[in-house]
Design a protein around this nucleic acid. Structure first.
Lengths: 341, 341
DNA sequence: ACACCCATCCAAACCGCTTTGAATAGAAAG
DNA sequence: CTTTCTATTCAAAGCGGTTTGGATGGGTGT
């Protein structure tokens, strides 16, 4: 069932039928209704490929995911995608995801651009000194960054959590509780979000003229064993930390495991604050959440990002938008005052 | 830069240029080279939309993800996607993902089909009595199921782990170790994979004429708290289990937490076997993995699935393929002999 | 009654590619 | 020296929509 057949069935021109279905005003109301009914009856829907070609709009948004990035952001990325995907559907956009090797990212973007596969792209996992904005500008591909790139805050569009402030507040909470040896289990620090979190952590210390022990700082892919192994080795050193600030629930779960292995009790002997992306399969809610956390729904971020991209940037790609996402500091069961054993 | 411009620059017809680039034989070798060089020089790549329209092939594969399904399969799904995505890229296919509400799945498929957005779809999370195969057949959309649907094993294409056998073996291992009260923390049992796992679990018991205590069986979305809460309540009942068989690493981590909370030691006091999908952010490898597990890489599953879909099913949609994936039983630190306290 | 407007509808061009059906020319065959 | 291939190239017809630039005809204002 295509437009030609439909218009023949209606004894109307393709022009009129097309216009009727696309809501143009120069169509008699009665005619429009007749067209809509017939279209529904015959199950007509415009061929997407033809429409794309005719309009010049791909009606889809691209996500290029390098394997390595995705390796560590896996669940976070998925949740973001879920949020974005819903928003895309609402706007009639398709989401196309390219999983490519790390070296092939640039090629992937070039291919996407030259073949006109998408109208815009979402940039994930911005790094310090990231060159994707330059590349995308050269290719003429509108984009929105989930996160920020230092130095490009004013010249690119982005949506981000205030990571620095969130971790500063979390650190202050621990300091207020009397903790003085706080470990930071961060993500890889060439990622912008991780660098900002570390900065917040350090600022909180600096504001009180407290030192930061480099031995208590780690940065790695945020896996469960990373949390467990790091916590284990730190807790066994001569001057162990009394609190942990962790960049991911998954890693925090590892920390909790290590604390248990050491025969200590989380929240009483050792305090833990984690960032909680509100992943659906790792709920940390309830009356009193298991983990004290800085929480910000990454799914909501995906949804907002998609809306901004479609509603603001696509209509006029020169528009610059930037938006901060809420992040709450929520007290759970994993924090308590420093034990002056 | 489009075909017309390129052919003008070469002083050749569009026909010849198109054929040269697509590897047709009726083109002079010298001409072909000239064309290729010029195309590279001018950065020409055929407009994907136009090509799709002309060939009638969308060159893309669809994944329709209902929110609820994705809710629980989140990380597993993502990992599958990653594997499939790479394979698609290799074949020049795009992956388009639709995230829709639970009630909108059917509409999503109809829309995809009538608008000719994809050449085939991947079916995720098959349930018992799943009606998607019927729908897709009606719509004329080729598909491959990740998992199986009881009763349709012979009439649909699928790729699956031998869940029943894996869990039967795991159960037997626990029984061999002397455990007699084994808890099963399963996924939702209207999902085919969960039903098969339970069947394997029960078969192992039946083969030894051992009873299964219904109080030790649970089925739910595989979150971390589900594991922790279930284990906690079971361990506190009058006749607690001495071992757990768990359907997911994430839930198993919750079980481990609960065991710790009870002051018990995993592997010594309580044994745990989990299914391990080999998620990249939850590595369970190393010399001796933390968890004894039945392991099968879901990323590899995605890759194989994509290859099968593109290489076998697309060329002839009447082909039926079915493939079993390896699943290993790997001994880690979380199992040990039953303690006859 | 005449010119002018609107409201509707339509034929045809166009989007950029693939593919069908010929045309051309030099080579091989008769 | 024709005739038949064969190798190579091309013009034009789709693919299925959207959009431009008119037609058509009844309603209005004078």
């Amino acid at each position: 069932m295509n437009l030609k057949e439909l218009s023949r069935a209606l004894e109307l021109s393709q022009t009129t039928v097309s216009r009727a279905l696309n809501g143009y005003p120069e169509v008699n109301a009665e005619t429009r209704q007749r067209v809509e009914e017939m279209a529904a009856k015959l199950g007509y829907a415009p061929n997407q490929q033809a429409r794309r070609l005719a309009t010049g709009r791909a009606m889809s948004i691209g996500h290029v995911v390098p394997r390595s990035l995705h390796e560590m952001m896996n669940p976070v990325f998925m949740e973001f995608i879920a949020g974005a995907g819903e928003a895309y559907s609402q706007h009639g956009y398709d989401m196309i995801i390219s999983v490519v090797g790390d070296q092939d990212v640039e090629d992937a973007y070039r291919e996407i651009a030259s073949r006109k596969k998408v109208d815009a792209v979402m940039v994930h996992g911005p790094r310090i000194g990231d060159n994707r904005p330059a590349l995308l500008a050269e290719l003429g591909l509108p984009f929105l960054i989930h996160g920020r790139i230092p130095g490009l805050e004013k010249t690119t569009s982005w949506i981000d959590v205030n990571n620095g402030q969130a971790f500063e507040r979390a650190t202050n909470l621990l300091l207020d509780l009397g903790h003085r040896r706080i470990a930071l289990l961060n993500g890889l620090e060439d990622m912008d979000f991780a660098a900002r979190r570390r900065a917040g952590f350090e600022k909180a210390h600096a504001d009180r003229d407290l030192p930061v022990d480099p031995k208590l700082l780690r940065a790695a892919d945020m896996t469960e064993p990373y949390g467990a192994d790091s916590a284990l080795s730190m807790l066994r050193q001569k001057a162990p930390p009394t609190a942990f600030l962790v960049s991911s629930m998954i890693t925090a779960i590892g920390v909790a495991r290590a604390i248990g292995l050491c025969g200590l009790k989380i929240g009483r002997d050792i305090s833990v604050i984690t960032h909680d992306d509100a992943l659906s399969f790792l709920p940390n809610s309830g009356e009193v959440p298991i983990f004290t956390c800085t929480r910000s729904s990454v799914r909501h971020a995906g949804s907002r990002a998609a809306h901004l991209l479609i509603e603001k940037i696509l209509p006029d790609p020169t528009t610059l938008v930037s938006e901060y996402l809420e992040s709450e500091l929520i007290i759970g069961q994993s924090t308590g005052p420093h034990q002056a054993n």
